[in-house]
Design a protein around this nucleic acid. Sequence first.
DNA 1: TTGTACGCGTTATCAA
DNA 2: TTGATAACGCGTACAA
Lengths: 336, 336
Amino acid sequence: MPKVGIRDVAKLADVSTGTVSRVLNDHPSVTTELRERVRGIIKELGYTPDPSARSMRSKVSRLIGIVIPDLTNPFFAELVQSAEQAAANHGYNIIVMTSFDHAAKEVNRIGQLTSRKVDGIILVPSNDFHTITPPKGVPIVVVDRLMPGYSGIAADHRNGARVGVEYLLKLGHRRIGFISGPKQSVPANDRLRGYLDAMEHVGGNQQIVGSPLIAEAAFDYESGRSAGNYLLARARNERPTAIFTSSDQQAIGCMRAAHDLGIPIPAALSIVGFDGIPLSSMTTPRLTTVKQPIQKIAAAAVAALLNRQPTPGADSPVLFDCELSEGETTSPPQPD
Amino acid sequence: MPKVGIRDVAKLADVSTGTVSRVLNDHPSVTTELRERVRGIIKELGYTPDPSARSMRSKVSRLIGIVIPDLTNPFFAELVQSAEQAAANHGYNIIVMTSFDHAAKEVNRIGQLTSRKVDGIILVPSNDFHTITPPKGVPIVVVDRLMPGYSGIAADHRNGARVGVEYLLKLGHRRIGFISGPKQSVPANDRLRGYLDAMEHVGGNQQIVGSPLIAEAAFDYESGRSAGNYLLARARNERPTAIFTSSDQQAIGCMRAAHDLGIPIPAALSIVGFDGIPLSSMTTPRLTTVKQPIQKIAAAAVAALLNRQPTPGADSPVLFDCELSEGETTSPPQPD
DNA sequence: TTGTACGCGTTATCAA
DNA sequence: TTGATAACGCGTACAA
């Protein structure tokens, strides 16, 4: 059985291939009646246009590439899933690639995507992103970890952190510890600034900066745990009554540290996470966290690529508000 | 600047386009010397072949589609990531799609992939898979949830469950509870059978089947929690001293149930999970679990698609062994 | 509004 | 081993 092509449709409908093509692409200059008939034949024959041939002529692949550091990270997984949804709504599909936070691999992936002539690339850059050479013809939008010179879309990490810390302040906490992300990370620094914003507003930051209320760590569970140990292993009236972390995984690690030290949560220690991954609602007790609007971010990224706006946010990234999700790891502080 | 095509390379190298094409595709019948020269020109001009044109002629897209129920599920996320790695090793890329366990959406996704002329499809079928019509020209390999009539690749769930339960038996447990997966799920039933295999071997199964040692549940956290409550809410000498669950998420939910009932783990209750997702090493205490060889499964799926073996496992699926990962949620039982 | 014919960039066939 | 050239399947000026 030879594959059915546009010619077969044309022949059976007794029209030219041009007309069939115009029907396919919803070109206005086709009689409604004729259009219907051709559509009928198309369905009857089960004809689907060959995407390669199509793409070759139209220079459009209806493919979007997305490069992330690690799909095992629930935040990125949800990002990819949301992007896939958004893309599908526009007839686009997604090619995923993992960079493992390795700059060389990342460059390689972007190169692959470029030569595949995808219509756009969504990139969550690796932490040592500076080595990246921007691809020539393909529009690229950077997500989450903003890079100067590219249009960027992300959550408003700074403001989100501020909101989270202010929530703790409102509960009555004053000695609020902070577990930061790695200092090369752009969003990590934004969150740190948000924490400082909120703390300065209350008490002046001279006791804060460089003080043992701040611990630097990677975003993962284990780092959160050891950072938590560092912050909590002191006399009760010196250790923080609350800790704001830079990721949910850190928060969970920190919960374990507290648990191991015999510090009850939230009675003697409040903890707030960041991200709002599904895992955050699976802990005991359920984690209070600052939730990123992942779906909005993904949808905006896809939209930016498809609209091909003239680099709208090359210097002014688009930020989306985070939202506080109240769990069971926060309560007013106990008196010392 | 007009894009550089194969003709430009040919002209500059003073050869025919045919030769350039042969160099590109590593066709053996080209002088080593000539091959080198052409390669030089290619690099000099920064030429990359147009994948659309290429695919149109060769009927090969170097694209593999993967359809999974839910990328938020860490197991599937790791599966996709592993598949991407394996595919990349062969010069292939991955298009991901989510079916949300919805048969209609699944059919639609498969249709999209088929008309995109991907070279193969990796499918984790939705639970009501029976409505699927097999695509015509595209080879498809079913993973994890095996379907009769398709070549399938999966972990040996039955044997894995048996190994997990035997581990508990060896520790001395006898009243071993089981939280199953949904009964429409193929792997869930396999795990149940593995559990029964091990239990029958020890004590005969008449007290087991249909007894309150088995609880049916979905694979998620919340279901695991309520199933755990069901199994544990009885007198100490009647409730199980160990519970084998069908997923890590169930196990974690079950841990919470035990915690809420004041049952210490592993002192008064041992728990074993299934899957070996990253999350399993992040709990307190760290979960003992039966780990699926996800990378092997993914690599095998990709290989099966690329080798286009003559439907090797249409009736005999390829199974990979699971491995017990010992954590801190298991210990010998306390006397009643 | 519809049909005709050419070209997109590559690979495969066949002849040299 | 290499070169010339015909497809591949579709979109689109241009003509009718």
